[in-house]
Simulated scan of single mutants.
Amino acid sequence: MTVLTHDKAIGDRLRSGLLCAALSASAFGLSGPLARGLINAGWSPAAAVIVRVLLGAAVLLPIALRQLQADWNLLRRNAGLLAGYGLLAVAGAQLSYFNAVQHMTVGVALLIEYTAPIAVVGWLWLHHSQKPNRITVLGAIIGVAGLVLVLDLTSGVSTSWIGMAWAFAAMVGAAGYFILSAHGGDAVPGTVLATGGLLIGGLGILIAGLLGVVPLHATMNTVAFHGFSVAWWVPLLALGVVTAAVSYVSGIAATRLLGSRLASFAALSEVLAAIVFSWALLGETPHAIQLLGGALILTGVVVVRLGEP
Rank of each mutant, 00 (worst) to 15 (best):
G92Q: 12
A93P: 00
F98I: 13
A100C: 11
A100G: 14
A100I: 09
Q102S: 14
H103I: 03
H103E: 14
H103Y: 15
T105F: 09
V108R: 05
T115P: 00
A116L: 07
P117D: 04
P117S: 14
A119L: 15
V121T: 08
G122Y: 00
L124Y: 13
W125Y: 14
L126C: 04
S129C: 06
Q130P: 00
P132M: 11
R134L: 08
I135M: 15
G139C: 07
I141C: 07
I141M: 04
I142Q: 01
I142L: 14
A145P: 01
A145D: 07
G146Y: 01
D152I: 00
D152E: 11
L153H: 00
G156Q: 06
S158Q: 13
S158D: 03
W161A: 12
A167L: 04
M171S: 13
M171D: 05
V172C: 12
G173M: 11
A175G: 14
G176P: 04
Y177V: 10
I179T: 05
S181E: 02
S181C: 12
A187Q: 14
V188R: 02
P189N: 13
V192H: 07
L193K: 10
A194I: 11
A194M: 12
L198Q: 07
L199N: 04
G201D: 05
L203V: 15
I205M: 07
L206V: 03
I207P: 04
G209E: 09
